[in-house]
Nucleic acid binder design. Structure first.
Lengths: 340, 340
DNA sequence: CTGAAAGCGCTTACAG
DNA sequence: CTGAAAGCGCTTACAG
């Protein structure tokens, strides 16, 4: 009943053999006489020896771990992505350090560099920052990074994105096909890559249908309850109010639904990004779904590909498709009393 | 532009000083002449040196990391808990390895021992297994473990639980107060500690009200769509059907809502565990809320307390309260055509 | 088949 | 103020 952990040295001493012989047994290297192996195994069992992986990996120059930087581990998008990364990492006998940047570039940088200081084998980053120059020395030194959901700034690296523009365009075209001409876009802060990309898709759909782009029908800001309340009041009021809403992500959609419950209007609605219970709401919510697990899986696979081989090859960008799921809210006609 | 990372040795050579002097500068130990410090800083900058934390920590006998074993990182309960653990760990300059057991004892054990092999400073575990004997040597060797949401089996360790029985009793008493006498309990698999504890609370409430316990109104099984469909068909049918439902966790509640949408009955409903959009559904869902973030925070604080001091002291058990949030579904009266 | 030495990149304990 | 040596717990490269 020793308080400290036994080491290979302790095992070697007890078994009466050299350190290297213990190492051979532990690593199943063969070329150890059955008799010696027996004695070593007995010593291992008696002492309760378990190899220190950290020490082993230090000698081998890797850590069998990767760092994952997310916006917020607690967010469904992030946590589903995390789980997918975990599965791929497990297949490569690697562990995952995960952390939240809270959309703060300073925190992103701190977290990422903390992972680098631990010498993680590689990084997967949902970037919040406006520059990633700070990563250049790390990448040059052999720590590859893969960016997910948003591209890096100022540097070249493997990136996995969603077809934001195409998905948004599909969503808005769907509303147009159901007769709407006054369609509001409620998106997240314009500093967020995906918010701007989805705005572009919204505009492309309007243009393709010959509808005017009316800035008073758009709102791009962090989806706080208050901001969404004011935005809804604005786009649903006036002479020519919106009859349909396109919500830029599921945080926005949820807030919109919450505020809409307090109002009389029942505009048609399509959300970007699926969410639990979308199918149970009344009406069920039509969405353009992305696949956060597939984002995570693809990013992790790209990373382990780099780690396994071509470390300096050209950076790849993968763009994943979205999928329209009509459920009811997106097929509502123009409500009486509103619109043309 | 070297491909390998520079080490302190490289810095020392370039600055023309001893290794220990570089260490002094890096650690801000003082007692270095300004002139020497200057040269060292210049060398560090020139080489882009960043200390290898793993090597430093090996020498110091810790890893400044903890292991977190969850049921499923992607589950909202787990991911909110994870985020809270992350925040406490950050304050202690520690990183978090997180992994999912999928409610599989073998996977729990593998994951936990993998963390121990990396010599994490401590463990936080939402246990799936029926025995935790395997942890005894690890705990003896100085890796403390804190259990969350469910107690460990076969061993003594710090534990953070929710008042499952009290919360369940409150939920059922609430339904009784609204006139219900036929109340079904739909819970998770009976092998799960919390499912059984909540069943006990359900029974205690019935007994306190002088209502009979009718086993045909209970269902304890993993909440698959099919199992819930059958269970609902059973408890809502017959001569004396249930007029109210008590759902044992939010996975059950969500499935129940999904199936209920396809049926004509509108029983009253209270769920254990809050969930996003519970307030937006029609009717809004009454719940007994627990606080997953507080669970994570408390567990992490207990762990760092152990790490900071009294490592062998008596194991503590903390029990967190629940909170009834009436929203509508739990206040529905007995529906016409059902009940007495 | 076996082991002593050197090394992974740092810190600790000691000596000057 | 400064540095050479030993050590954290392993593996690698080498010699027998």
């Amino acid at each position: 009943m020793m308080s400290a952990r036994p080491t290979m040295k302790d095992v070697a001493a007890l078994a009466g053999v050299g350190l290297k012989t213990v190492s051979r047994v532990v690593n199943n290297e063969g070329s150890v006489s059955p008799d010696t192996a027996e004695r070593v195994h007995a010593a291992i069992a008696k002492l309760g020896f378990r190899r220190n992986e950290g020490a082993r990996l230090l000698r081998q120059g890797r850590t069998a771990s990767i760092g994952l930087v997310l916006e917020d581990v607690a967010d469904p998008f992030s946590s589903i992505l995390t789980r997918a990364v975990e599965e791929v990492a497990r297949r490569h006998d690697s562990l995952v350090f995960a952390g939240s940047s809270d959309e703060d570039p300073v925190r992103e940088r701190e977290l990422t560099l903390a992972f680098c200081a631990r010498r993680v084998d590689g990084l997967i980053i949902v970037p919040a920052g406006d520059t990633h120059r700070y990563l250049v020395p790390e990448i040059m030194a052999g720590t590859p990074a893969v960016f997910v959901d948003r591209p890096p700034q100022d540097i070249n690296a493997d990136t996995v994105l969603v077809d934001n523009e195409g998905g948004a365009q599909t969503a808005v075209e769907h509303l147009i096909a159901h007769g709407h001409r006054r369609i509001a876009f409620l998106g997240d802060a314009p500093s967020i890559f995906t918010a701007t990309a989805r705005l572009a898709g919204y505009r492309a759909a309007l243009e393709a249908a010959g509808l005017p782009y009316d800035e008073s029908l758009t709102h791009l800001a962090p989806p706080t309850a208050e901001a969404i309340r004011h935005a809804l009041a604005r786009v649903l009021a006036g002479q020519d109010p919106a009859t349909a809403l396109f919500c830029g992500n599921n945080r926005v959609t949820v807030q919109v639904l919450r505020e809409l419950a307090k109002r009389p209007e029942r505009p048609a609605l399509v959300g970007f990004d699926d969410f639990e219970l979308a199918d149970v709401l009344q009406p069920p919510i039509t969405v353009v779904a992305q696949d956060p697990a597939e984002l995570g899986r693809t990013a992790a696979e790209l990373l382990f590909e780099r780690l396994g081989g071509d470390r300096q090859g050209r950076a790849k960008t993968v763009r994943l498709p979205t999928r329209l799921i009509p459920r009811g809210s997106g097929e509502l006609p123009i409500a009486r009393g509103n619109g043309t």
